[in-house]
Design a protein around this nucleic acid. Structure first.
Lengths: 214, 214, 214, 214
DNA sequence: TATGAATGAGTGTTCATTCAT
DNA sequence: TATGAATGAACACTCATTCAT
């Protein structure tokens, strides 16, 4: 839970690089974590390679041993984040994780979403910005957004009566609300607490299923 | 309607430069419009002073005659945009423009919001990014967001029964959804059409007033 | 004669650049001359942009106002040198400048060649090296060498009996000898004096026209 | 014949490393050969230590076990090449190898010269360039050139009547022609064939001995 | 003897800003 | 007002060399 997902050491390996030994893997992990920290503090454009290596307690040269350039680092972080994000929509054998019809299940899913956003806040905060830095990152982000929306849209379409909502539009609206709500709380310096998530869940549920009691 | 609001020439004037003749005012307007165009194409960080002066058909030296630096330009644009945005919440003598209880009135307001977003898309798209560049811009943005939220929250609070929603949270959620929905449409390369605004309006209305028919 | 050919200010203008005013032209000339001086002292690879701008008494930024990068500078110098060199083979109305049959005329031409080599010694010295830096420079050099050889070969072919020499081979051999002789003198720290040019002329003349008296 | 002269393992041994076992000798040989290959492909300045060790299938660390630095490697190659080159002028017990008066003998010697040039082409091609890298290499080259010239000059001086040629100048001119001719052929992408060597031989012979039939 | 991870001085290049005309 | 030439601090990136294992 503390910064590095379980299998994160597997992502972001520059294509040109041979398999890393454990020391190498650790250094790379340090750099990725340091980058998150630096971006959190100063934003992507305000982050210097020097900032990252200082936090990671390593050298300039080492940075370029693991990433071919600054964009490559962002690419690695993006891949890591989007791959984690995709689990939000994974369909387990027992059924979809994303069951929006039950308020309780929806509430749980909103909590998962919130946790993910918080973990990758430095990235999600600058999503926009990052997308324009590197085409790979832009595409990756676009794909992730599209996947989120479609997953949500298909749940909406297959759910009980939602009035005459266009599922794709409704899906995008829900994702948009969740994402930006987290950003705004963050931007205004207020934490996103449980009560807020309750309210958010209720609003989403009402918007999609107006007949059911909030 | 085409890019420059009626009184725009009055904003963004660097403290050091007060009285501008009409020629000067025109040059300044050109620079502001050029900046919007450049930011639209390349984003703030991708925009060079050269890009702006090239579009404005003027010179480097002239730019610094009107703005003390690049941030100053952004500040001017931000002030312009936020001042326009504030009109969305203006309370006219005849009553509030923002009447959320009636679907039709809400729909009109959503349309106004959408128009504003589109006009200042280059800025809204990079909101995040811009806020971190300059403290003045950051504060300005924060203030605007707070104003939007409070305006919306007070309408919610004074509206009919909305279940047990926390007005501030609900207000932020509505603003978040509207803002990010526009961004996502833009990001995905799809225009925000009337049907989408209908759906959006319905979702907001349902979320706030569950008992009323969508 | 002292470093800058008459029309040199016309060459090496980066494609992207508008027409330069006289101040700009002077600065560019200074940079080109400074580059020759720096390369003379330290070779191309040993020359830093800093060395050039220090000699030219200008700044780092200014350098990049006139040249898009270090290679661009070499390209400009190469174009200048090769364009000058082509005059060695120009055919005037009154007849070819390059009349190899008469010893006196050949001697004059060898003197011209020598003068050109000396003027552009820093470049000719590193010809090889430079060619591999930039494809444009490589091609330019190759074209120049080919032009020299063909000019010489055609004079040989159209001259009186030269035994059974292959004109192309003989032409290359003559150019090779002249070029490398100058380099070697330079390399060994001995100046190429008039007596040496006399001997050189005689050897070329004998090699091409064995029957005539040396 | 294929890259490594018989006793090559004896040259280029860094002062600090004396006794090498056969494994070590092999590794060193691999590095020297790899360096030739790398320089052939990318020139000295374009060659990275990484390129050399990749070709030699060894590691960075190993490189510095055999050479104290990059220049040391060049020094070793230079010593190897110049020591081979000196055999061109060796005076065997039966008389000088370099007999320039007889066309046939001269032709043989030109062939030997050509073979040597081809074997060490990567080095000879960058002679200039290399000399400026390291004083030791520069001196070594200068000494070799001087030796070549003096050997040739003394043959010329002791040969039959050569008109009024200055032997030192004539010697340098001959060496210059041979060296640069090979380079130019190489540079223009044409092989140096037997016919070309015939012509070359004839030109040298004529230049030195004008009275004899070409 | 061999390895490959780590180092950091060195350098090319960018671009906001200033200034002389 | 307007111009465009000049400036230089700031930064990304390279690569020869060292070192722990």
């Amino acid at each position: 839970m503390d910064g590095a997902p379980a299998d994160a050491s597997a992502v972001g390996v520059p294509a040109s690089k041979r398999a890393l030994r454990s020391q190498g893997r650790q250094t790379m992990r340090n750099l990725l974590d340091a980058a998150m920290e630096a971006i959190d503090e100063r934003g992507y454009h305000g982050t210097r390679v020097k900032d990252v290596v200082d936090i990671a307690n390593t050298s300039h040269g080492t940075f370029y041993l693991y990433f071919s350039n600054k964009e490559d680092l962002i690419r690695a972080l993006t891949i890591e984040a989007t791959s984690e994000a995709s689990s939000l929509y994974a369909v387990s054998e027992a059924g979809s994780k994303l069951d929006i019809e039950s308020w309780d299940n929806l509430r749980q899913w909103v909590a998962d979403y919130s946790a993910l956003w918080s973990r990758y806040a430095p990235l999600f905060r600058s999503w926009t910005d990052l997308a324009s830095i590197d085409p790979v990152v832009g595409d990756q982000n676009r794909r992730m957004v599209a996947a989120h929306i479609h997953a949500m849209a298909s749940r909406i379409a297959s759910a009980g009566p939602t009035g005459d909502l266009d599922p794709e539009v409704a899906g995008m609206a829900v994702i948009a609300m969740l994402d930006r709500f987290h950003f705004m709380r963050d931007f205004m310096g207020e934490p996103t607490d449980e009560a807020a998530l309750d309210t958010l869940t209720t609003m989403v549920h009402r918007a999609l299923f107006p007949s059911s009691p909030g």
